[in-house]
Design a protein around this nucleic acid. Sequence first.
DNA 1: GCCAACGTTGGC
DNA 2: GCCAACGTTGGC
Length: 155
Amino acid sequence: MVKKNYWLMKSEPDAYSIDDLARDGREPWNGIRNYQARNFLRDSMQEGDLALFYHSNATPPGVAGVMKVVSGPEPDELAFDPDSAYFDPKSNPDDPTWIQRPMEFVKKFPRFIPLKELKEDPELEGMLVVRKGQRLSIQPVEKEHFDHICRLGKG
DNA sequence: GCCAACGTTGGC
DNA sequence: GCCAACGTTGGC
């Protein structure tokens, strides 16, 4: 049994929110156009890993719930669609630059946890998402931090 | 709307 | 390979 990893994945709720995932049940996480985030998606994530669903560019920003990695890496088809905002003419279908991961809804927290609260919590010191100016849309999270945030979300 | 903190691009 | 210009992210 491989050790489970934990993640935080950002989405702008205007584009796709935890409620959208609750409705859809399962959704490919695509449109990632940053190499570091791509590498996490492609190389580090394992089926069964859990991820915090983070609402970015929201009022307020914060963690809304939990989802699960349910499959291996797949080519991000948006990169091949000239009509998509995520079209990348440099991505070759035979060797895709960008990849996606199917994610599955696990739960929406009874209590949304705003970023402000994460920043003020001494238990979460050192967590990437509380660092000023960090922009990475897919981040590894320590199990202790993940568990603590789940407790906070219970209300 | 502002702006800090990046990441990317392209000239040299 | 350097680095300035530019674009994007995302909190505030």
